[in-house]
Nucleic acid binder design. Structure first.
Lengths: 122, 122
DNA sequence: ATCTTTGTACTATACTTATAGTACAATAAT
DNA sequence: ATTATTGTACTATAAGTATAGTACAAAGAT
């Protein structure tokens, strides 16, 4: 399972925070393939947001093929398969990391601080 | 000086990203007392946003007494020393790292792959 | 069959965010 | 004095976000 938490102070939309937390939950292993997520209504009550806000997050993740929904049953973590060449992978990784570090820099963080934080997330 | 960078994917409003980066820039020493910030028009062009968006960010920081503006001259970092608590810094770093590890994961990369790539950038 | 639970799909409203455009006021340089 | 540059202050418009409310359809349990 996963413990959701919304922070209104950040300015990041709620539905997007939900999306991020599901994705990150998967990345860190807290959410596993096939696992059921809370129902849209249950999570809406839990997070004190509207049903539509949760539904929007789930919907977007379903479009991205990250979640699978069964009407009447629930929403589940899908099995993701990605097919890209090693060359493309390497290029994409560099691209992501460049963007990553440049954003971190704009907040005054060093690469070492980032690496340390990422180590903790493992 | 400081290198601003906006990320539209996060959903965090542009004016808020600008505010954050100025505050963190001051806290980390990348922006010093008395230093002049880019003009609203120059930064707007640089970041490819509207003049009003930058003005909104500067205005809010002026209300917070963090910036001092001299019409016709420019906008400057005020004498006030801004302190961002370790907790806040940590939170921001986590926020940034969470987002990026999620992105990396959605491309099929592990946290280790990201760390290795970042090590090379040092 | 009926009921409950699930996700889905609307309408309507309000607020926030971003843009475009225009104009004005204060300062500095000429 | 004139000009250029600066921040400020508007209006108007569009898009995004969140809420409330309602209704429907699919699946499961009884």
């Amino acid at each position: 399972m996963i413990h959701f938490r919304l922070d209104p102070k950040t300015g990041t939309p709620f539905y997007r925070q939900i999306i991020d937390q599901i994705k990150f939950g998967m990345a860190s292993g807290n959410l596993k393939t096939g696992e059921q997520l809370p129902t849209v209504r249950a999570l809406a009550v839990d997070l004190k947001v509207n049903l539509n806000t949760v539904a929007k997050a789930y919907k977007e993740l379903e479009i991205q093929n990250i979640l699978e929904t069964q009407q009447g049953t629930g929403t589940f973590i899908n099995e993701i398969k990605i097919h890209i060449s090693d060359k493309e992978k390497k290029h994409k990784l560099q691209e992501i990391c460049n963007e990553f570090s440049s954003i971190a820099f704009s907040y005054g963080f060093s690469i070492n601080e980032i690496i340390n934080q990422l180590q903790k997330q493992k």
